[in-house]
Design a protein around this nucleic acid. Sequence first.
DNA 1: ATGAAAGCGCTAACAT
DNA 2: ATGTTAGCGCTTTCAT
Lengths: 340, 340
Amino acid sequence: MAADRRPTLTDVAREVGVSAKTVSRVLNEDGPASAQTRDQVLAAVAKLGFQPNLMARNIRVGGPDTTIGLVIPDLANPFFGAVARAIEDTVRERGLTLLMGSSADDPDRERALTDKFLARRVSILMVVPAVGADHSHLKSHRTAGLPVIFLDRPGVGLSTDSIVSSNRAGTHDGVAHLIGHGHRRIGFVGDLPVKLYTRRERLAGYRAALQEADIPYNRSLVASAHDQQGAKAATSKLLDLADPPTALFAGNNIMALGTVAELARIKRKDVAVVAFDDVSLAEALEPALTVVAQDPEEIGRSAATTALTRLDGDRSRARTITVPTRLVVRGSGEQPAPKP
Amino acid sequence: MAADRRPTLTDVAREVGVSAKTVSRVLNEDGPASAQTRDQVLAAVAKLGFQPNLMARNIRVGGPDTTIGLVIPDLANPFFGAVARAIEDTVRERGLTLLMGSSADDPDRERALTDKFLARRVSILMVVPAVGADHSHLKSHRTAGLPVIFLDRPGVGLSTDSIVSSNRAGTHDGVAHLIGHGHRRIGFVGDLPVKLYTRRERLAGYRAALQEADIPYNRSLVASAHDQQGAKAATSKLLDLADPPTALFAGNNIMALGTVAELARIKRKDVAVVAFDDVSLAEALEPALTVVAQDPEEIGRSAATTALTRLDGDRSRARTITVPTRLVVRGSGEQPAPKP
DNA sequence: ATGAAAGCGCTAACAT
DNA sequence: ATGTTAGCGCTTTCAT
């Protein structure tokens, strides 16, 4: 009944009547071993249900653990889920496993997670930096050879590889699409906080597109929210303006959900919409939702391959990889602007 | 330029001029320590940027690692993402971190992941069992006190705690909803493989609802698919039947996406639809999508609290917790059946 | 209040 | 082809 101690290498060795090192050799296909010893060892391993203690091994070998620490804002956000899957797919053949945590965009939680990951001696650290987080504490680790990669946003206080979407250009193209259909009052439903990198970049792209068309930037057409509910309210607020927007640009996938839901609720199909980041069912909406699609698979893949290259000794200077977005025209951005 | 070795406890001890044990005492608030020693140690820790090697600590202490191994079919599936987040939220205050991997519903990949997790001496193991996977190899670990929890589906070859949705009752209610609006030819778009637990349970619920209404089960009204593209094709196939269904039940979130997308593509609003598992934008569709909503947060929370109870020594017999689903009526199930 | 020695499970380095 | 010794970084145990 007592919870038996898990068998160790030594237990297996004793069972067979060889030394621990011999068992180790067989299991790691290190050095030579007679066929008979091999078989006996393998049999004993199976019999005892022995599983090598990876922590002990790592301690001895001194190298990093075969894990990759990944900090994202929210495990349940499909965008980051897709990124995570792409990372996993890319590193799996190298035997790396994901150690994951959500920061909820809280710098303290992010720090707690990275500290834990570092204490576990992860091979690679990947972080979607929270707003307000500082990363200078990672400098020494990076210098010591730990690949550190920032995802989706650049980090602060540390120069290292970053993978980001073409936020500014993508948003520009989305907004230009709306302008091309005659819209001049275009609302921007952005996420919060306003200091968030992606928010700032996308807003900059929005402004650039306006400027290009000689449309003055109008602050009252910019609304913000933390979540989907907030995005509904923000949308509602914009449409209640005395001189309301005829088109809306949603700043990310969550804002898109809220904006679209609110328009559906109030049955306003005349409002043109383009969203940043694709969402499922976009094509089933009426009109189907036009989006600036990100490429989470490519973001994850780039991050992983970059990190693996670093792990293999690449010490060249920090790169910033910008993964292109793609305007996917589905209809929602083509409502004509009403004649003035 | 050389990658400096990470500082160890001994490095800190040497820096201060005390023994390693003293540093350990200060850091773990074990035994006593003079205020002065404390301060010196802490200062040295900060100066050297020392971070205790958790693996070394765990080796010595012998206990499990403060991680929880979680195997899900797909990191990018929002349902499992929501489950994972709920687990994380529940275990965070206990200091547990998630070690995650996707099995892609492949028994070999599942096994590879669980083996890795076991080799890392996780505190808790949670698995969404892949079809065809056997879990008897986990028996000894469970006996030895490792909490093992099956999520979403029961496991095979091991009696342990499982958390599942009320698949059968939920589907029954969804199909009954369709029947209540006059439908008698109701298609079922299910996922694959057909042996999948959730698929079987949901199909059973579908059949039960039919039987209750004295509608004969018609095999040709059941179509299946692996993914969203396949679900589109399956939907198309059903509607192309000589005597096509007037209503459809989609067996999971992915099937729902495909079914809804296909109906939108061919502009068939007359077909009633109910889906198992909620999807984002369901309310923005026309008609809004009626679903049998699962409760991923509750599934994750139940799993986590059950596991923690086990970790605290609860050795009572294995429980199966069924998390209720909820019929969320939004309109898509209320198209009247055409008069014969 | 602090230290010395031993040992967790494993493997590197040198035997034999 | 196999064994021995030492030691990874830490904590336990027992001294002092």
